[in-house]
Amino acid sequence: MLGKKVVTAQKRGETRALCLGLGMVACSMMMYFFTGITIIPSYKKSVWTKETMCKLLKANIKDKVQCLFNNDASDENIFRYPCLEVLVDLNFSGQEVMLYHNEETKERNPKCSYIPQNLENYKEVKKLIDIIAGNFREKQIFPCYYDPEGREKSVILERLYPQEKRYFAYVWPSLMLIGGVLIIIMVKVSQYVSVLSAWQYKTNI
């Protein structure tokens, strides 16, 4: 009687472990799919792939500009913020180009180099823009990214999805996939050993 209970508990444990392994494999596949339709297209879409050095030429804070979150935005969804315009010398070539914070900055507002995340408090935004402009004026020379094929004349300060970030996005789904496969293998090996032991026991009898 006790032996039957042990066998039943063992089978339940194997079933749960097998379900866990299969669930981990399924989740890893979903994470791979999500990464493939979000990060990878954005990475390939970016033309600013070559890193170089930029020298600051101008860092001006212009008049307030409007930021609309959608085309049908009401007055409540319109925010005005100071526009930071940063012009740099690309690779000390004497070529004056516009610097943007990242790829999305130019799409949202090509007139400004930086767009704050929170636009509701104008005083805080103005203070942040002043700090960023001061940092540019203090540093003068810094790394930036440009289009090596020359299709895009502007440069960006940092990439949204650099190569190391793209690789890091595959770390967790890969670890989950490996863990799920190992659990399934361990369950199958355990089942095989149990069947083999039972067969040997019957043979000895």
Rank of each mutant, 00 (worst) to 15 (best):
L2R: 07
K4D: 08
K5Q: 08
V6S: 03
V7I: 10
T8Q: 09
T8M: 03
T8Y: 03
T8V: 08
E14G: 05
T15R: 07
T15Q: 11
R16F: 10
L20E: 00
G21N: 04
G21S: 08
G21Y: 05
L22W: 06
L22K: 02
G23T: 08
G23I: 00
M24T: 10
V25N: 04
A26Y: 07
S28E: 06
Y32V: 01
F33I: 03
T38M: 05
I39T: 14
P41K: 12
P41E: 09
P41D: 11
Y43E: 14
Y43M: 13
K44R: 11
K44H: 15
K45F: 13
K45H: 14
K45C: 13
S46V: 12
K50Q: 15
M53V: 15
C54S: 05
L56T: 02
N60D: 12
I61P: 02
D63P: 03
K64R: 10
K64N: 03
V65K: 03
Q66E: 11
Q66Y: 04
Q66H: 09
L68Y: 03
F69V: 15
N71L: 04
N71F: 08
N71Q: 05
A73K: 00
A73Q: 03
A73R: 05
I78D: 08
F79K: 06
R80F: 15
Y81S: 12
Y81I: 10
C83A: 10
E85Q: 12
V88K: 06
D89L: 11
N91W: 12
N91R: 10
S93Q: 10
Q95D: 15
Q95M: 13
E96G: 12
E96C: 12
V97D: 14
V97S: 13
H101T: 13
E104N: 12
E107L: 13
K111T: 13
C112L: 05
P116F: 00
L119S: 02
E124M: 12
V125M: 05
V125C: 05
K126H: 09
L128P: 05
D130A: 08
A133V: 07
G134P: 10
N135P: 09
R137M: 08
K139A: 01
I141D: 07
P143L: 02
Y145W: 06
Y145N: 05
Y145E: 01
P148R: 07
E149M: 02
E149Q: 12
E149K: 07
R151F: 09
R151M: 11
E152V: 15
K153Y: 15
S154G: 15
V155F: 15
Y161V: 04
Q163M: 14
E164F: 10
E164V: 13
K165V: 06
Y167W: 15
Y170D: 01
Y170E: 00
V171R: 01
P173V: 07
P173M: 02
S174R: 00
L175T: 03
M176H: 05
G180Q: 00
V181D: 03
L182T: 08
M186Y: 14
V187P: 00
K188F: 11
V189H: 04
Q191L: 04
V193F: 08
S197V: 07
A198D: 04
A198H: 09
W199H: 14
Q200N: 13
Q200T: 07
T203I: 06
N204R: 13
I205Q: 01
